[in-house]
């Protein structure tokens, strides 16, 4: 074996260890949360002292946390429905724009994603107060819709772009009306993108923190808000159990997307 090939083997080894380390860096915090939630012991310890689901049971005994979970789910569901419909309509509209205009339209539609959540939340705080929706559930809901919208729009618009425009002409020439073409051709072909957008919107809304902090109604709490407060006075595996639900939701989302569209095309 020559010195050169030894050297290249060593550098390759160093390279792959680096890669493993970097992926570990990405995943370790997630693993930590899930593992900590499964402990049978009294304290947040890693590795867990025995396995049990008792902390999940404990979570569901805490009325305030469960209420926050339900609120988060409700808000995420409404955000998903509203953004899904509005984004689908907008994406359909963008198809009749020229190439140049469509690029600008896309930038406009994704603005809430491109500017920091904190700034949008502050603007909304002032604006909702001005129009009398300050500290209301509706106001909070609006904030979530605005911030979840771009994820939904990007997914659906990407799905529509994949559809050959000639299919529209083909369907029309065979006698289908605009609505029939939408129902028989466009919608089925856009469905994976639509579902993906819905998953993104749901998860985004479920996880939003800053906007909820600034817009939350009096007495209302979302799960991330409740979790933050909980963490500041009690560092117990109950918090890990709450967080794990979010992790599981994300993995379910990733699995759905993979099944429908494939991750490579999604991101």
């Amino acid at each position: 074996m020559t010195v050169a090939s030894l050297g290249s083997r060593a550098s390759r080894l160093a390279g792959s260890s680096l890669i493993v380390l970097l992926y570990a860096f990405l995943l370790i915090p997630l693993v930590a949360v899930v593992a900590a939630s499964l402990t049978a012991g009294e304290f947040m310890r890693l590795p867990p002292e025995g396995l049990s689901l008792r902390w999940f049971a404990r979570f569901f005994q805490r009325g305030d946390l469960v209420e926050a979970l339900l609120m988060s789910l409700r808000i995420a569901l409404v955000s998903t429905l509203v953004t899904g419909i509005v984004a689908l309509m907008a994406a359909l509209a963008s198809q009749s724009l020229s190439r140049r205009m469509a690029v600008w339209f896309q930038i406009g539609m994704t603005l809430p994603l491109l500017i920091p959540e904190l700034l949008t939340a502050i603007g909304l705080l002032f604006f909702l107060y001005r129009i009398g929706l300050g500290k209301t559930v509706l106001g909070l809901q609006i904030g979530h819709i605005v911030l979840a919208f771009p994820y939904c729009y990007v997914s659906i618009a990407a799905a529509l772009r994949q559809i050959d425009p000639a299919l529209d002409d083909a369907s029309g020439s065979l006698g289908a009306s605009g609505w029939q073409t939408f129902r028989h051709v466009t919608l089925p072909l856009a469905m994976p993108g639509l579902v993906m957008g819905a998953v993104f919107a749901f998860i985004t809304s479920f996880d939003l923190y800053t906007v909820s902090l600034l817009l939350k109604p009096i007495g209302g709490n979302t799960l991330p808000l409740a979790l933050f407060d909980f963490l500041t006075y009690e560092f117990s595996p109950t918090a890990a159990a709450a967080a794990t639900m979010s992790v599981l939701l994300a993995f379910a989302g990733v699995a759905v997307i993979q099944k429908l569209v494939g991750l490579q095309r999604a991101f």
């Binding site: 050959d164 000639a166 299919l167 002409d169 083909a170 029309g172 020439s173 065979l174 006698g175 009306s177």
Partner: peptide
Amino acid sequence: SSKRDFGVVFQNYA
């Protein structure tokens, strides 16, 4: 076009 009853064969088949 949907009322013309013209059959169209597209270049990329569509």
